[in-house]
Design a protein around this nucleic acid. Structure first.
Lengths: 196, 196, 196, 196
DNA sequence: TCCTAAGCGAGACGGTACGTCTTGTCTTCCA
DNA sequence: TGGAAGACAAGACGTACCGTCTCGCTTAGGA
């Protein structure tokens, strides 16, 4: 197969992904039409459908690329599992800082304007990160590992959302402290739990 | 205003709410068209738009009714705030049992098939319940109350989702124990946290 | 039967006829909806349909009344047939003057804005007038009487239309002269017809 | 512009014009809905609106085409103005014969079932024909030329209508004689006019 | 150097759903 | 008990997208 074609095709796909991103920031995912996207990308209608089955496919494929990039980036870093023993949920601080820097994107992706697909994809990515940090076996063996993973991911997203919506002025470090406080120690310290 | 009109109008609205519920169970919210709903409800197109601005309005109005019913039901019960000191998150067990009984509905509402609006409405209802159970002041004063509320609601929905998706065989009591374990005590007991 | 009801009914009908006339002047017949009419007449929907089968029926019924009034008015006048021998098409001058005085109404009724029904009703009324003026038997017996009637009515309406559309400045007497010239003597005097 | 599109578009437009004609014969113009037309033409709703703004536009555009065809056909014929001196209103006989052959179409177009638009378009076409036959200057200079044109057109349509409605058995030649009799010589020969 | 096969833009097309509008019916209220 | 009020089912309107399709144009690789 001539590789020139590959190159052209790749350029087209990139243009479409870029257009999607731009437009999602501007109007949100649900409000976009395929027509908007191909106008923004300056691409023919049939070309769009030659590459993707619809705007959802385009969105998913974008996250697919992102996931692969992240995987490569991570495989370069030595196993952090050991470090995580002393410093659990090590990913969180970096993520909050990243989110602060790219607040517009995060807001779009997470605040409903990204649609259900986006949120799901983000959960998958976060779940992957959390899974790698979590010790392979949990003490007591009462909690399934993937349940714990979902719990952490959910708490993280809740925190991010609350931050953006209600207290955008807080520093990443402050938000991180709150996140870690709740996730690691739960509510008991806050309500003077009398159990036992 | 003649009350006959009220009665007819109420019947029409009820038929539409019922149709929406039926169809959401069958095909999910996003896939529904207004045409589907009015066909199911056997109602004229213009009648639909005389009552609601669209399917989202219909959905919201349904939750509005639900919320009012719940409020009335709750106002009958004596304040549970006192009891919640000994037994925090008292709502959870009853909710898990309720969810088990009406699994189909919960699955539809929560598992993405209900759409973003539904999830948001459910969060509002749950947040209201949690807010009533949570002590008015939290110890240490480090966590904003509404953040804690969002954390609990998120954890509850995560638990529900995980239950339905991954381990539908578990008993409500088992799921409740897991939910309470994580939310009240956090991860520390599971990972042998060495901090401090 | 209580005649009070008759009176109410008559008032309702009059209100509807009046509303129709008002609105036809304002927007033209075709553009009117039943809703417009009952709003203008301040009458309930079912009331309208209790009296008329639709807006066409209302229109026709209005002309029906008009026709009866005209018939009464004419029956008072002694037979003009004799006079018409010396002065054929005697009706025309009076009609043109009337049209000039009520130009708005005529324009509405005749210039297309009145709809096909209106034009037809007007033709019926005019045909009746023409029929009365025309001698009972035509010389030569080559032309059916009703054909001649239609010819005259058509020429009259053509004249009226042309007057309003193209030369609204002309006096009724000038227009009448043109009408009579063409209808009575035809084209021959104008084109120097060489036949025979 | 690629001419393939022209070809496809032309086919679509032809199908719609054909469907309109068919349905007008069957139910009349006013009773038609756009839905009827696109069903008959087997064309998508949006396609219809891509070509025409509504059924009136479609109708007008059909007459536009017809007018262009007639113009081309006429431009082939040598100027008939000269001939018309000896034989005025030369168009009439051919038109009556044509009408007899395509009675259904004429009946639909003229008898009210064609709607106001149709009648107006037909008047325009006939006016054009009459204008070409009429000598450039009229004797006496008392009648505006376009008034005379309207008079002739009106008389022709009156004749056609009367023929179809009241005496469909007459031959084209008989009808033509009546038409020419009235239009050229007027009423005077029929009523023994005593003027002067 | 020409040929050919692919990627591509342009956009016509049949469909489906939208939210609005109008019609004629039907049920209840009120005088 | 009959007229008025207006909720309603039905369905057409014109608009917006969808996903499919056909068509020429470009462009680079192999002949």
């Amino acid at each position: 197969m001539p590789r020139e074609i590959d190159r052209r095709a790749a350029r087209t796909r990139r243009a479409l992904h870029q257009a999607l991103l731009t437009l999602m920031l501007r109007k949100g995912y649900e409000a976009l039409s395929v027509q908007d996207i191909i106008d923004e990308a300056d691409v023919g209608r049939s070309t769009f459908y030659a590459h993707f089955t619809g705007k959802e496919d385009l969105l998913r494929s974008g996250f697919q690329l992102l996931r692969e990039e992240l995987k490569e980036a991570h495989s370069a870093v030595p196993a952090t599992a050991a470090a995580s023993h002393d410093h659990p949920l090590g990913f969180s601080m970096a993520m909050f800082e990243h989110a602060a820097r790219y607040a517009d994107h995060y807001r779009t992706m997470i605040g409903g304007r990204g649609g259900a697909v986006t949120e799901n994809e983000i959960r998958l990515i976060l779940a992957e990160m959390v899974r790698q940090e979590l010790p392979p076996t949990l003490e007591g063996d009462t909690m399934p590992r993937d349940f714990v993973v979902q719990f952490i991911v959910g708490a993280f997203l809740t925190t991010l959302n609350w931050w953006f919506e209600r207290k955008p002025g807080l520093l990443p470090s402050e938000v991180d402290a709150m996140f870690r406080g709740l996730v690691l120690d739960g509510l008991s310290p806050l309500i003077g739990d009398q159990r036992r």
